[in-house]
Nucleic acid binder design. Structure first.
Lengths: 130, 130
DNA sequence: GGTTGCCTTGACGTCGGCGGCAAGGTTTAG
DNA sequence: CTAAACCTTGCCGCCGACGTCAAGGCAACC
């Protein structure tokens, strides 16, 4: 299969596939005229990449998962390196959730105070008008 | 006060202050030799900018808060435009928290399955070794 | 007058995951 | 014969909040 077909079947663009190749994530063969040739397994790989990207992984983090798939595993998750990345990412997400929760709290308070202040000012203005 | 002093007192860099100016967030006067001259109020403004940036606001979102401070309010939060931004940002954060929670859930499951799979494989391997 | 330390504008670099365009080669269909 | 539809490499653009020179002007002190 050539790059256009893979791109369509993977729901992405040829530009993206070439970019992944430049990053060492996919390594297609070449036909006589220089066209990239992908086998079916690469479709799986690209799907894995896309799924992990969607979760917020960077391409660097994804590399172990691809290697794991290439090693013949049914899932890219099961190799030690992948598990390590999963653990780290989970910790990062937990950390980010904490900080984002704090931010939410602060924004909530800030908004509440601003509204309270506005109502108070509004009342004073009305009283002056009386 | 010149730019170096303001930068130090605000805990940032001169480059940053010049950037804020290019974005219309601070507007210092000029002395005869062309040096930027800031008054004390600008320190307050820069602190406001930094605080909001730290919470995850973009410079565009911050503009109303600065305008509110400039209008003579004791807080940058109390003007209608600022409140609108606060509301929007709070909604954005809530949304992001939801999605990040879902991601956390998925990562957690993915990790659990990967570990379970590894233990199972390990058992099978041991059994074969028996 | 030389050095040091401020200040000025301007322009390019950073990070990541691509989009988009240019200039060309290949293959197929009409 | 030519147009269409693929493919190739290569390079610039994007976003945002700056960092980092570069080249030069101004002020103060010894």
């Amino acid at each position: 299969m050539r790059i256009g077909e893979l791109a369509e079947r993977a729901g992405t663009s040829t530009r993206t596939l070439r970019y992944y190749e430049s990053q060492g994530l996919v390594c297609p063969g070449r036909s006589a005229n220089g066209y990239r040739i992908y086998d079916e397994a690469e479709l799986r790989v690209v799907h894995e990449i896309r799924a992990l990207l969607a979760v917020g992984f960077g391409l660097d983090d994804i590399r172990p998962f691809v290697a794991c798939l290439r090693a013949g595993n049914s899932s890219g998750d099961v190799c030690p390196d992948s598990v390590a990345v999963l653990r780290r990412k989970l910790a990062e997400v937990d950390d980010y959730l904490d900080r984002l929760g704090a931010v939410r709290h602060q924004l909530h308070d800030q908004l509440a105070r601003a509204i309270a202040h506005r109502e108070e000012t509004c009342l004073r203005t009305r009283n002056r008008a009386d």
